[in-house]
């Protein structure tokens, strides 16, 4: 009958990210955690072998999760499932695509496999990538990313880097406004992206794809802070299952992202959550994940 359907278009890739807006994407390492996350109102889960805090603590090379684990998580929930591939590791990404995960995070949390990123346009599965500034964000979009997130500093429970990255991106977009086409072209050359991408960003006054906060978000207040800074939604990695009461924390962060502009509601949901994950000072880190993949 109506056999005119097309799949894997950029609109469909970007579109799924649009549907995740105003939501929380949670790291999970097994089916039980995935179910807790879904029940708490997560819009998606990230299937992982180890959460970033454990990757940091245990060290060693961090790779794509075992397909068996990813499948187990995909079977446990109805929300979209994301999984991480190493930066530049297009073979891992092809495996994840074959598993039919809904989104791939080409992530600095795993040990990079290349200085170059994956050429993402040739995939049918959409990609999300981290960025610290506008240049990184637009370069990832140029390569085919359909969603951006701040890099922050994963596994630290310390929100300062995510705040820094979000502010920097906002400021750099603000600075594009009112520039002549000659100046915009200069910016495009500096950032090593097309004029068209820079012009579109300047005209929209925001990134041309959805932009989430990630890397260090540990409490409902952290999530609300990132939303107030203009993020479209929030990734929470170690912050949920490294807290004292994951179920409560997950629900509270979900609500905080929806009602980020209502301090009374935020006060209520922040009450009696038990201990948040233990945090680390950025100065004390031996590995800064955010410096991977520029």
């Amino acid at each position: 009958m109506d056999d005119n359907a097309v799949k894997g278009t950029y609109r469909l890739k970007k579109g799924l990210a649009e549907m995740l807006k105003g939501g929380v994407i949670m790291d999970v390492v097994n089916a039980a955690q995935a179910k807790i996350a879904e029940k708490a109102g997560a819009v998606s889960v990230m299937a992982l072998e180890r959460v970033p805090a454990d990757i940091r603590a245990q060290g060693g090379v961090a790779r794509m999760a075992d397909p068996k684990k990813i499948k187990e998580i995909m079977n446990a929930v109805s929300v979209p499932v994301m999984a991480k591939a190493r930066i530049g590791h297009f073979a891992e990404a092809r495996i994840l695509e074959a598993l039919e995960v809904d989104y791939i995070d080409e992530s600095e949390v795993l040990t990079p496999a290349d200085e170059r990123h994956i050429e993402k346009h040739s995939f049918n599965v959409p990609f999300v990538c981290g960025a610290r500034d506008l240049g990184e964000a637009l370069r990832r979009i140029k390569e085919g990313a359909a969603m951006i997130r701040t890099k922050g500093e994963a596994g630290t429970g310390n929100v300062i880097e995510a705040v820094r990255h979000m502010r920097r991106i906002n400021e750099e977009i603000e600075a594009l406004k009112g520039l002549s086409s000659r100046k915009l072209n200069q910016k495009a050359v500096e950032m090593r992206v097309s004029y068209k991408l820079v012009e579109e960003t300047a005209r929209l006054g925001r990134l041309p794809v959805v932009n989430f906060a990630a890397g260090g978000i540990a409490t409902p207040a952290d999530a609300a802070l990132m939303m107030q800074l203009g993020c479209d939604g929030v990734f929470v990695g170690s912050g949920i299952f490294k807290s004292k009461n994951p179920e409560k924390m997950a629900k509270a962060i979900v609500e905080a992202v929806t009602h980020y502009n209502e301090p009374e509601i935020l006060a209520k949901i922040s009450e009696g959550l038990g201990e948040a994950m233990e945090g680390i000072e950025i100065e004390k880190l031996s590995v800064k994940m955010q410096e991977r993949g520029k």
Partner: peptide, 25 residues
């Protein structure tokens, strides 16, 4: 199906006519 089965298709909508249907999961 899942995201890989998301699709765009040309629809014919009563009272409106041709319309691009964007189906995401």
């Amino acid at each position: 199906g899942r995201q890989l089965q998301s699709f765009e298709a040309n629809l014919n909508v009563k009272c409106i006519g041709g319309f691009k249907g964007v189906f995401i999961r």
